[in-house]
Amino acid sequence: MGKKVLIVDDAAFMRMMLKDILTKNDYEVVGEAENGAKAVEKYKELSPDLVVMDITMPEMDGIQAVKEITNMDKSAKVIMCSAMGQQAMVIEAIQSGAKDFIVKPFQADRVIEAIKKVIG
């Protein structure tokens, strides 16, 4: 198996789509979380090579979660997901430590391209 990935999105459907794209491309999905607070817990527990994280979620949004994860682990690699029209939030996420972003609806080749750019 390839690199270990944690998927974070409040929509189960989106997590499923991402998991499908990743597993078909030899990445191992080691965990899933439906909000930022759970993402931070899972990151501590699983130490994934990469986190693919939605920006807009209940409890704790992706930007806050990126800040907490990168505070814990300076070398953390996080790719943000956003819907169209969230450019300001994407910029904030990148400034908070995210390495790249992908736009929903996901295009498999763009997802893999972003991941390869960040973790190879």
Results as ranks from 00 to 15, higher is better:
residue 2 G to T: 00
residue 2 G to I: 03
residue 2 G to R: 03
residue 3 K to G: 03
residue 3 K to I: 02
residue 6 L to N: 08
residue 7 I to E: 04
residue 8 V to K: 10
residue 9 D to R: 10
residue 9 D to G: 09
residue 10 D to N: 11
residue 10 D to Y: 14
residue 11 A to C: 09
residue 11 A to Y: 04
residue 12 A to N: 11
residue 13 F to T: 15
residue 16 M to P: 00
residue 17 M to A: 12
residue 17 M to L: 15
residue 18 L to A: 12
residue 18 L to G: 10
residue 19 K to Y: 01
residue 20 D to N: 13
residue 21 I to Q: 02
residue 23 T to I: 13
residue 24 K to I: 04
residue 25 N to C: 02
residue 26 D to Y: 01
residue 27 Y to S: 01
residue 27 Y to P: 01
residue 28 E to R: 05
residue 29 V to N: 05
residue 31 G to W: 05
residue 32 E to R: 07
residue 33 A to I: 08
residue 33 A to V: 09
residue 34 E to W: 00
residue 35 N to C: 09
residue 35 N to P: 10
residue 35 N to W: 06
residue 36 G to I: 12
residue 37 A to V: 08
residue 38 K to F: 05
residue 38 K to I: 13
residue 38 K to S: 06
residue 39 A to L: 05
residue 39 A to H: 04
residue 39 A to P: 04
residue 39 A to K: 02
residue 40 V to I: 12
residue 41 E to I: 10
residue 42 K to V: 00
residue 42 K to Y: 05
residue 42 K to M: 15
residue 42 K to Q: 14
residue 42 K to R: 14
residue 43 Y to A: 04
residue 44 K to W: 03
residue 45 E to N: 08
residue 46 L to H: 01
residue 48 P to Q: 06
residue 48 P to Y: 02
residue 49 D to I: 00
residue 52 V to I: 15
residue 52 V to W: 02
residue 53 M to I: 11
residue 54 D to L: 10
residue 54 D to M: 11
residue 57 M to Q: 06
residue 57 M to T: 05
residue 57 M to R: 06
residue 58 P to N: 05
residue 59 E to W: 05
residue 60 M to T: 07
residue 61 D to M: 12
residue 65 A to N: 11
residue 65 A to Y: 08
residue 65 A to E: 13
residue 66 V to M: 13
residue 67 K to A: 12
residue 68 E to Q: 15
residue 70 T to N: 06
residue 70 T to E: 11
residue 72 M to Y: 13
residue 72 M to R: 03
residue 74 K to V: 11
residue 75 S to M: 08
residue 77 K to F: 00
residue 78 V to K: 03
residue 79 I to E: 00
residue 79 I to K: 00
residue 82 S to K: 10
residue 82 S to P: 07
residue 82 S to H: 10
residue 83 A to P: 07
residue 83 A to T: 13
residue 84 M to E: 13
residue 86 Q to Y: 10
residue 87 Q to R: 12
residue 88 A to Q: 14
residue 88 A to E: 15
residue 88 A to S: 14
residue 92 E to D: 14
residue 93 A to M: 09
residue 94 I to C: 05
residue 95 Q to I: 04
residue 96 S to M: 08
residue 97 G to M: 07
residue 98 A to M: 07
residue 98 A to F: 07
residue 102 I to W: 04
residue 104 K to S: 11
residue 104 K to D: 10
residue 105 P to C: 06
residue 105 P to T: 10
residue 106 F to A: 01
residue 106 F to G: 02
residue 107 Q to G: 05
residue 107 Q to N: 12
residue 108 A to Y: 02
residue 108 A to R: 03
residue 108 A to V: 02
residue 110 R to D: 14
residue 110 R to I: 14
residue 111 V to Y: 03
residue 116 K to V: 03
residue 116 K to Q: 15
residue 117 K to P: 07
residue 117 K to M: 09
residue 117 K to E: 09
residue 118 V to F: 01
residue 119 I to Q: 01
